[in-house]
């Protein structure tokens, strides 16, 4: 299999030259300087490496870059629009959800995927969807609160 030479990331085509068996996480971080997604466990258990591929959250530490093809990748760096944060980023700031925040990018990408699929999630739905993301510092309650806040902001906040 030949090297991967282009990826569609955050709305633009990016060139690279990566062996296809390398992880998407390492290509994003080391080749494209998109370091928002983090290594946490290497086995898809902690969610720190979560990015979206065609809107679906995936564990980029376990995804070979050769499997991506023309699909559209969204990373934490691609959420801001014209200097405006995604409602979930904004909500997390308002709630003060993080301490060390190493988990933040993965949490946000998972949360964005949830809101994309289900704009009005109930608390049990949030817990079920987010259960693969580990935070070691803060209680998870504030992230749940922020997802609810972002959902309500998206519903009525921006008219």
């Amino acid at each position: 299999m030949s090297n991967v030479t282009s990826l569609h990331v955050n709305g633009t085509g990016r060139t690279c030259d990566a062996a296809p068996e390398r992880s998407l996480l390492s290509v994003l971080r080391d080749d494209l300087a998109l370091t928002g997604a983090k290594y946490g466990c290497g086995e898809g258990q902690c969610g720190a490496c979560t990015v979206l591929v065609d809107g679906v959250p995936i564990r980029s530490c376990q995804t070979p870059v050769g499997a991506i093809g023309p699909q559209k990748i969204t990373t934490i760096e691609g959420l801001e629009r014209d200097g405006r944060l995604h409602p979930l980023q904004q909500a997390l700031l308002e709630v003060g959800a993080f301490q060390c925040a190493y988990c933040a990018s993965g949490m946000i990408m998972s949360g964005v995927a949830l809101l994309g699929k289900n704009p009005n999630p109930t608390e049990p739905e949030i817990i079920r969807f987010m259960d693969g993301n580990i935070c070691r510092c803060a209680g998870y309650g504030r992230i749940i609160d922020a997802i609810k806040l972002a959902a309500s902001a998206a519903k009525g906040g921006t008219q």
Binding site: L34, E77, L85, L93, A104
Partner: peptide
């Protein structure tokens, strides 16, 4: 008072560089 976390925005946008995110010219792994 509940002053917000300094640099909080950098954390929710993936901009903060932890040690794992540092890169140097010619760097190897």
């Amino acid at each position: 008072t509940s002053v917000r976390k300094v640099d909080a925005r950098r954390y929710v946008t993936g901009q903060h560089a932890y040690a794992v995110d540092i890169s140097r010219p010619g760097m190897l792994h």
